[in-house]
Amino acid sequence: MKYILSRFGFYMLAFMAAVTINFFLPRMMPGDPIQSFLARLAQNGGNVSPEMIASLEALYGYSTNVPLFNQFITYIGAIFSGEWGMSTRFFAPVFDVLGRGMLWTLLLVGVYLIVSYTITTLLGIYVAWKRGTWADSVITVGSVIISSTPSVVMALAMYFLFASNLQWFPTGYAYDPQLDPALSFEFIGSVMHHIALPLTCMVALGMGNVMGMRSNMINQLGEDFIVMGWAKGVKDDKVMLQYGARNAVLPMITTFAMSIGGIFGGSLIIEIIFNYPGLGQITYQAILARDYPLVQGYLLIMTAMVLGANFIADCLLFVLDPRLRTELEQ
């Protein structure tokens, strides 16, 4: 329990440091969200008065008359109260805008994590057990080549081939716009059809994890307890899965947690190219419109997810790895 509390305190400090950077970084960027909004309003023939400017600055929390430190204190309080400000791009509360995109991003990333790590873990175990064979050479070389392809190139190639040219998959949206969201086979089938292509692209880009699992498994196969298992006549399947794979998976938990940030960053590009209505698509529009409150909200969510995933990984390692518990008790 002492270990878990210490890790929780560490991640809370990291979260507060990230929140501080999240507040000051957008304000160091050139441009102003209020002026950007007023420029779009003026282009559409709207009248801009000093009273309107003052009202907008008060609404969005960017008043030039309030000291920056006071704005920061207000911002900290707003984070924990759920008042993340108003979006200057979508004219709605940031929390509500991000909530709409969060559903689809969590679906995409969640299914990806389950599918990708299941495939790469099993393939890594298999090629380590069959090391030196043609299967080992084909799978390892192929996974390295596929995962080394830039995500933009992979996504564009799959989009133009399968969606634009062959038209096997839709070119956008999370489901057929003609359908009403409901727990029906038709709606669920439409959601899976729309998510299939971006999901396949992300799984292909994550094939590099095969090499990590392969290395962990090979290291375990050289341990004394594996040799002892073979010497006692234990079946190969049991040695491979219960002896070797069980211990080889432990480092992958840490790798999995550390990759969360990269996965969400990669999903941003995937969502933009495939026109998938998740957090990536929303954030892209927010960046173009200099919607600082929305960008800050996105970065805050990503920070919380990455730190939360690492904290869960630390707890899992503490529970699953007796060597770690023994080391901490000494």
Score class of each variant (00 low, 15 high):
Y62C: 07
I263E: 04
V319F: 14
L320R: 03
A309Q: 01
G244Q: 05
G132Q: 07
H194T: 13
F91S: 09
W230L: 08
N70W: 10
S190E: 06
A14V: 09
P93F: 06
F162H: 02
P26Q: 02
Y276G: 09
L316P: 07
W104C: 02
E57C: 04
N70T: 11
R214I: 00
P251E: 01
G206F: 06
R290F: 10
T149D: 03
R131G: 01
S63F: 01
Q296E: 15
G142V: 04
G124P: 01
F225M: 07
V97Y: 03
A92Q: 12
L268Q: 15
L106G: 06
N165P: 05
P67A: 06
G206D: 06
A182C: 05
T120M: 06
G101Y: 11
N216V: 02
S6L: 13
M202Y: 10
A14D: 01
A286D: 03
A304Y: 00
I253D: 08
A182V: 08
G189N: 00
K130V: 02
V66F: 06
Y159G: 04
R27V: 09
F90M: 07
T118L: 08
R89I: 01
L294F: 00
L328K: 08
S190N: 05
R89C: 03
M28N: 06
I218W: 01
D291V: 00
S81G: 07
F185P: 05
D96K: 13
Y62M: 14
F95V: 13
M154I: 10
S164T: 09
Q242V: 11
W168M: 13
A135C: 13
S259I: 12
I4C: 04
S49I: 00
Y126W: 12
M29A: 02
L179Q: 05
N22W: 03
L199M: 13
N275T: 15
W129C: 12
L320N: 03
G297S: 09
Q242M: 14
G266T: 11
M154R: 05
